[in-house]
Amino acid sequence: MKANRMEAFSDGVLAIIITIMVLEFKVPEGHDWSSLADLVPKFLSYAVSFIYVGIYWNNHHHLLHTVQTLNGKLMWLNLLLLFSLSLVPFSTAWMGESNFSSTPTALYGIVLLLAAISYTLLQRAILKQHSSDSAFAIAMGKDFKGKISPLFYLAAVVSAYLNSWVSCFFYVLVAVIWFVPDKRIEHFIRSRAS
């Protein structure tokens, strides 16, 4: 089986996740600009989550282009990632509805941590298909961003109970770190094509 089938399924799930998030917005009862003020926390949580889902979609797309053989383990690890990401709309809505209260903000971090762990497991399983001296293994290197992100998520979960805005800073920081697509995989794909 080719990885493009798993990629197409994943793309559909991620599109549904984004759709569910935007459907959480309810039309305000008022008819002026001030009526939108209550939606600001919801919009902020939505915007960060939209960026996160976009980051996962982008990196997932690149990662699946390195799959040599699709097997049951990869399919289950991919489903674990999709399960983790499917929790994003709920945690996003709760965080926005609660105006970034401690527990919803901490839960958001737990969901992001689960997604990061799931992605790492999928990436490692794909990496095992390549020899340790392969161009892909060399391109992946030490994966600094992949190692630092879970630590920031843990810091965000803990800080949510001290100051939820500090917690949100960590979420935005990780999104900024990952906003630029992972060039390592792009370089590997280009070198394989030539």
Rank of each mutant, 00 (worst) to 15 (best):
A3T: 13
N4C: 05
R5L: 04
M6A: 15
E7D: 11
E7W: 13
E7R: 14
F9S: 02
F9I: 07
S10F: 10
S10I: 07
D11W: 14
D11C: 11
D11S: 12
A15K: 07
A15M: 11
I16E: 06
I18D: 05
M21S: 07
M21N: 08
V22I: 15
L23D: 05
F25S: 04
F25H: 11
K26Y: 10
V27Q: 13
E29S: 14
D32W: 03
S34I: 02
S34P: 00
S35Y: 09
S35R: 05
A37G: 03
A37K: 13
P41Y: 10
S45T: 14
S45I: 01
Y46L: 04
A47F: 15
A47L: 15
S49W: 10
F50T: 02
I51R: 04
Y52K: 05
G54Q: 09
Y56L: 02
H60R: 13
H60Q: 15
L63G: 07
H65C: 04
H65Q: 14
T66R: 09
T66Q: 10
T66G: 04
Q68I: 11
T69L: 11
T69D: 15
L70F: 06
W76E: 09
L79R: 08
L82I: 00
F83Y: 06
S84A: 15
S84M: 02
L85V: 01
L85I: 03
S86Y: 01
P89E: 02
P89T: 01
P89M: 04
S91R: 01
A93D: 10
A93P: 00
A93Y: 14
W94Y: 08
M95W: 01
G96S: 09
G96T: 06
N99R: 13
N99L: 03
S101K: 11
S102H: 13
T103Q: 12
P104F: 11
T105N: 13
T105M: 14
G109K: 08
I110E: 06
L112G: 02
